[in-house]
């Protein structure tokens, strides 16, 4: 008998005998309460905003929504966001693998410090990160002055946005990989070395196949986050319409100008991109369930 049914004798009589229930299973009443809580939480926090985004976008009909996405500035914002994501994603995949490799396959001093450093982007406000980039590379700084003089501006230009995005999304891949690589240990790599394989061969025939799923997850999460990044990009981009305004920045500007349909159409498109990444992840999970299980067992 669980606590819940002791407190409510009525429920105990109607419920199945306690011995028929798995020890880990809750009483029907508790289960219903948990389900209600989860569903209402999801409804308020996830579904409602999603529905609002799409209804607002389509307030004046499909034609108006699509037309608002067709103008030059909107097109430029979409292209910019996709470009930034396409640059940030592989960069962070490579950084993430390197960091996870270093942390899990080698022993060195200051390892704990490095792990903290990897988590830093999660705890630092993106706006602060953006400000740091401006201070470091802005026209008034030593490096920034030199870069501008050589026609390589970082702040208020695409390199700055890439830098900000890479910083904010850095932990995703490493965080996914570290536990997986820790659990797998070094034995397979060592075995490959004793069989005569070079370091590079070991990496792409043993290490990489063993982490491919975690890597994919991390990269997809990183992608979804990179497309939506606002705070850091808002600071470093200078919000130049048609040049450095990404999709989230454009959404904010349109909204502030009371261009509700245009703002929400762009928001709907951005949401669509994010949903697409999630869909891709789920599809891959379903399709390769066996391989996933094999990777976790053993």
């Amino acid at each position: 008998m669980s606590d819940a049914s002791l407190h409510r004798p009525g429920a105990a009589r109607s419920a199945r005998p306690a011995s028929y229930r798995k020890p880990t299973e809750e009483t029907p009443a508790a289960r219903t309460a948990l389900i209600l809580l989860t569903v209402s939480g999801l409804a308020i926090l996830v579904f409602a905003p999603l529905i609002v985004v799409f209804t607002e976008a389509l307030a004046d009909g499909w034609a108006a929504a699509i037309e608002s996405l067709g103008n030059r500035d909107a097109q430029s914002a979409i292209r910019l966001t996709l470009t930034i994501t396409a640059i940030a994603m592989p960069l962070n995949a490579v950084f993430g693998i390197a960091a996870a490799w270093l942390i899990t396959k080698f022993d060195f001093r200051g390892k704990a410090f490095l792990i903290t450093l990897i988590d830093l982007p999660f705890s630092v406000s993106p706006v602060v990160a953006g400000l740091c980039i401006v201070l470091l590379f802005g026209a008034n700084s030593l490096i920034g002055g030199w870069l501008v003089a050589h026609d390589l501006p970082i702040v208020f230009a695409i390199p700055g946005i890439v830098l900000a995005t890479v910083f904010v999304t850095f932990p995703f891949v490493a965080r996914e990989l570290i536990p997986v690589m820790t659990e797998q240990g070094r034995a397979e790599e060592e075995a490959a070395l004793t069989l005569g394989a070079s370091g590079w061969r070991v990496f792409h025939t043993v290490t990489l196949p063993n982490i491919r799923w975690a890597l994919l997850y991390g990269t997809l999460l990183c992608t979804a986050r990179a497309m939506g990044e606002f705070g850091a990009v808002a600071v470093v981009s200078g919000k130049i319409r048609g040049q450095t305004a990404t999709m989230p920045i454009t959404i904010e500007m349109l909204y502030n100008e009371y261009l509700s349909v245009a703002a929400f159409s762009m928001a709907a498109l951005l949401t669509g991109f994010a949903l697409l990444t999630l869909l891709l992840k789920t599809a891959l999970e379903l399709r390769h369930a066996d391989a996933l299980a094999a990777n976790h067992r053993h």
């Binding site: 034995a187 004793t194 005569g196 025939t205 990777n295």
Partner: peptide
């Protein structure tokens, strides 16, 4: 030829590919 305590077979490869690994490398 090293045999590890936990065997350290390559989990994503077949037995055939495991044994062939050293020759292919």
């Amino acid at each position: 030829g090293f045999v590890f305590q936990s065997y350290a077979l390559f989990r994503h490869m077949t037995v055939f590919d495991n044994i062939a690994y050293g020759l292919a490398a």
